[in-house]
Design a protein around this nucleic acid. Sequence first.
DNA 1: CCATTGACGGAAC
DNA 2: TGTTCCGCCAATG
Length: 102
Amino acid sequence: MNLSFFAQVYEIVGCIPEGKVASYGQIACILDCPRNARVVGWAMCQCPPDLPWFRVVRSDGSLANKDFYELQRVMLEAEGIPFLPDGSIAMETYQWSPDFQA
DNA sequence: CCATTGACGGAAC
DNA sequence: TGTTCCGCCAATG
């Protein structure tokens, strides 16, 4: 498992089921590196087309860049995750429970 | 090898 | 309560 954080992040994100979301810090925590939240986000920037990056949101339940906000919003709504009038999602309800099966 | 960047997180103001 | 700043780590140039 000498995969870079990069690859590990891909593994975690790829394990997120539909209708669920995970925060960058949560993924970093799964990797046992809660401070790598930024690295996770950076890995998402390199997100391959196979990666459901749209299921990854901020700890606040809000999205990141405006450019991706609308796209992410559409993708999440398509997954069955409604957006609050606040512009964020009820991550408390939709946050994915990591099973450590990565 | 050094400097910069980056789709974050939390603490400070 | 909202906004701003710093810190953190890895990858790229």
